[in-house]
Design a protein around this nucleic acid. Sequence first.
DNA 1: CGCCACACTTAGCAGCGCTTGA
DNA 2: TCAAGCGCTGCTAAGTGTGGCG
Length: 669
Amino acid sequence: WKHIDGSVERHKDREKRKEEKVQRTRSLIKLHFNTLSKCTCSHLLIFYRSEYKIKRIKVESVKKGIKRKQKEEYDEGEDKHKKKCKDKKTGDIAGKKKVKKEPEEKWKWWEEERYTDGSKWRFLEHKGPVFAPAYEPLPEHVHFYYEGKMSNLSPPAEEVATFFSKMLDHEYTTKDIFRKNFFKDWRKEMTSEEKSKITDLKKCDFSEMSQYFKAQSEARKQMTKEEKLKIKEENERILEEYGFCVMDNHKERIGNFRIEPPGLFRGRGDHPKMGMLKRRIRPEDVIINCSKDSKHPKPPPGTRWKEVRHDNKVTWLASWTENIQGSIKYIMLNPSSRIKGEKDWQKYETARRLKKCVDHIRAQYRDDWKSKEMRIRQRAVALYFIDKLALRAGNEKEEGETADTVGCCSLRVEHIKLYPELDGQDFVVEFDFLGKDSIRYYNKIPVEKRVFKNLQLFLENKQAEDDLFDRLNTSILNKHLQELMDGLTAKVFRTYNASITLQQQLKVLTSPDENVPAKVLSYNRANRAVAILCNHQRAPPKTFEKSMQSLQSKIDAKKQQLFAAKKELKVAKSESKSLHDEKSRKVVETKRKAVQRIEEQLMKLEVQATDREENKQIALGTSKLNYLDPRISVAWCKKWSIPVEKIYNKTQREKFAWAIDMADEDFEF
DNA sequence: CGCCACACTTAGCAGCGCTTGA
DNA sequence: TCAAGCGCTGCTAAGTGTGGCG
């Protein structure tokens, strides 16, 4: 796919583009100079940043010349070396050597060649995961009571009891399934004596334990600055030691280097396994993955790893099997890493390829609505939903193992309602089902007559709990998509539709003469359109009403202030008219400025209020992070001279460093 | 073809620390 | 300077999709 995204060409005229970039930055700074009087503090900061950047670019381009030469020599050497390695089937020795030469500046992996043989790395070294701290038994004075009588628990039983006591305030400790599952698993940890005594959860009193933990967390909050700093430093030390690995010559940040601590499982939605005990993971459960010639991570003293393997066809550093669902958990790299970034980039390139053939695919599935074969009609209607409504594919799930949620292919009869006519619209389909994370999808949309007739056909002679698409599943659908385009799967439609919507909405919503905050609001609105499409919801923040009210009162106060200021201006004006002296003219001028300033502040507040209100139940983060080609946003920022910091925070900028570096203002998704 | 194991992406939420504004 | 509230970050659950096997 190197050719598909044109990275070969990109490489050639990189120098030219770099020069252009410098020019752009220069003109940007000029622009900032011109508007300096209007600048707020944050603008100034950004201005300084851009100036800093320009200096760096200059120095770097001088350095680059030398560096490139060195790199070419190195690459040549490495090529030879690689061949040798392949012959002997040894690992990557060169990788180890170059680590020390790690350059100060950020590594631009996107300017390098990718592996084409399916391997993910040549060299991988890390320190292994960090385990959850051992259980600390409760102090003597904290008791557990059964039937009102004080009783001490054995440490294993006590530990599980503490998990429950920490959750007492949560609603789910009142749920039957939760309590049942918890009690069953708790009893497994008890001694036979405890088991025979403790037979009813209702007779258990955890309140003293609960109080103790509340006091503990209160004490943590009350800690002095020094104590807090000490903890912070210790965390930083652990991060420095365990939070990074070396992968192919580069130090990379690990995403989750801590093993999940034991606790009570809380699934989302109506989960049949809620309350079950999530076991403590020991070194003996953990498989380590690293390269043969690396310094292998050491298991904690007196323990051993389950296995140490050297599989460079996968990206994980460590894995273990979790006991609730029996699924495998992994330790992997941070999104800013090469291995994640390349994949992310590739995802958007696939979506861009879909853009080129989507018209054809749409024509095709519309045609298939008329097919003689039921399975083809079902496939075509499902695909239409996935395309139009950005539904997820909908794999089958094991019944009783997870919450009852569905996606497109697993929709059941009970999840849709057909209305030949509704609110003046023809052929309306009403969707109402729980999707991923048990988030409700509710939508009423008019569809084409043919789709409607097909749906009626699919529903014939079926019960509520029967599958809507009984001749279809995700693997059939994806196999079909694979034939239409290389690399095409159901989820590519979500990516494609999200990104194209953002691009198109940005075009519609951005008005050139608006100021920066107004443009950012437009961006958020475009982002919101995507979030609505993808049904990314959130619980309204607990303090929403309150904070909205306080914002409103601020606005009201501002309005009052504006009114007063205008009045003062009027008075000053009339005074100045009659007096005709320099002093009164100056007063008018200052009053005028005050009015202007207050007007600006008011507008800013109003923009903020609108933005927040519209965002009440919609989460923008997920689409920004997973569905929107970052190059669209970066291009938009460059086009309108919006600092990219307004759109992406630090973490996001790290994840999208590739896009920030490579996208020009004329990037087209 | 169906099933399962596995790898990897996508998802919402809680808690905490930093920013903001009085 | 300090409290309030907001945004960030980490956490981990819950999806998607592939490939191998019988």
